[in-house]
Simulated assay, not measured.
Amino acid sequence: MAGHSKWKNIQRRKNAQDAKRGKIFMKLAKDLYVAAKEGGGDPETNPALRLVMDKAKAANMPNENIERAIKKATGTLEGVNYEEIVYEGYGAGGVAVMVEILTDNKNRTAAEVRHAFSKHDGNMGETGCVSFMFDRKGLLVINRAGLELSEDDFMLEVIDSGAEEMETNEESFEVYTEPDQFKQVKEELIQKGYDISSSEITMVPQTLTKLDSEESRKVFKLIDALEDLDDVQEVYHNLDINEEEYEDYLS
């Protein structure tokens, strides 16, 4: 999962830039709407809503924006109906790409996603064409700063809590769980006093595809084009990211 971990670290830095344009808030509002629509507006009885609210607060989303999205979903405010869709396809070099969508206009969004694929040397495929290459996992990112335990001792605590794997980098530990164990592991680690900087259910590639610099840049452009679409919530891929190349591309 090392390639996935590296990409998520880069993506978090990019997300900070996106937030300045309001795109993160827009996507979080849609997530809040769907979670509240499906499970109710009370985060105490709706774990999915509680998870999205945590993400929204971590992104410094204003409380009134959070409350407005929930009220729309529960009928307190007039709103629109969103539909969840996953599009799949391939980028340059055969890189597998999955795109999670939340839209109130399926036809418009399908056309936008298809255009992004074709414009950047990719092609949108049929449902199921790449999803089998990914596993759904819970991901908890824990800050290393101030952690008194050794890495080995911390790993034992993580395993005891029910997690299945852990990765490390200079700033954090990344803990992976099965989706049905995600809530339990998160709550246990919080009770033990660990600083969880982010938590999410995500898609992790089983294998990574390594490309040369030119083809990698084509995939970078495709990912950016997809993420810039208002209805796109998440983009997953199995590109083996070269962090220096991507930082150079962003600059």
Score class of each variant (00 low, 15 high):
I101Q: 02
I101V: 11
L102P: 02
L102H: 10
D104Q: 08
D104S: 13
N105E: 06
N107E: 08
R108P: 00
R108M: 04
T109C: 09
T109W: 08
T109N: 03
E112V: 09
E112H: 11
E112P: 00
V113W: 04
V113D: 04
R114F: 04
R114S: 12
A116M: 08
A116I: 01
F117A: 08
K119S: 15
K119E: 15
K119L: 15
H120P: 11
D121C: 03
D121P: 00
D121N: 15
D121Y: 15
G122N: 10
G122I: 10
G122H: 11
G122P: 07
N123D: 00
M124G: 08
M124D: 12
G125D: 15
E126D: 05
T127I: 11
G128S: 12
G128Y: 08
C129V: 11
C129K: 04
C129R: 05
C129L: 02
V130H: 02
V130F: 01
V130L: 03
S131P: 08
S131Y: 06
F132W: 10
F132Y: 14
M133W: 00
M133T: 07
M133P: 00
M133F: 06
F134A: 12
D135M: 08
R136A: 07
R136N: 06
G138M: 03
L139S: 13
L140F: 03
V141Y: 00
I142L: 08
I142K: 02
N143A: 15
R144G: 04
A145H: 06
A145F: 07
G146A: 15
G146T: 10
G146Y: 11
G146E: 14
L147H: 07
S150A: 10
D152A: 11
D153Y: 02
D153R: 09
F154H: 05
F154I: 00
F154D: 00
M155P: 00
M155R: 12
L156Y: 02
L156S: 02
L156A: 05
E157Y: 02
E157C: 04
E157G: 04
E157S: 05
E157V: 08
V158I: 15
V158A: 10
I159P: 00
D160W: 03
D160T: 01
G162K: 09
G162L: 10
A163W: 02
A163R: 02
E165S: 13
E165T: 03
M166I: 15
T168F: 11
T168P: 00
N169M: 00
N169D: 13
E170M: 10
E170Q: 12
E170L: 12
S172A: 13
F173R: 03
E174K: 02
T177M: 07
T177E: 06
E178G: 01
E178M: 13
E178D: 12
P179H: 11
P179R: 07
P179N: 12
P179Y: 11
D180S: 05
D180V: 01
D180K: 04
F182E: 14
F182N: 14
F182Q: 13
F182V: 14
K183F: 14
Q184L: 08
V185P: 05
V185F: 05
V185Y: 05
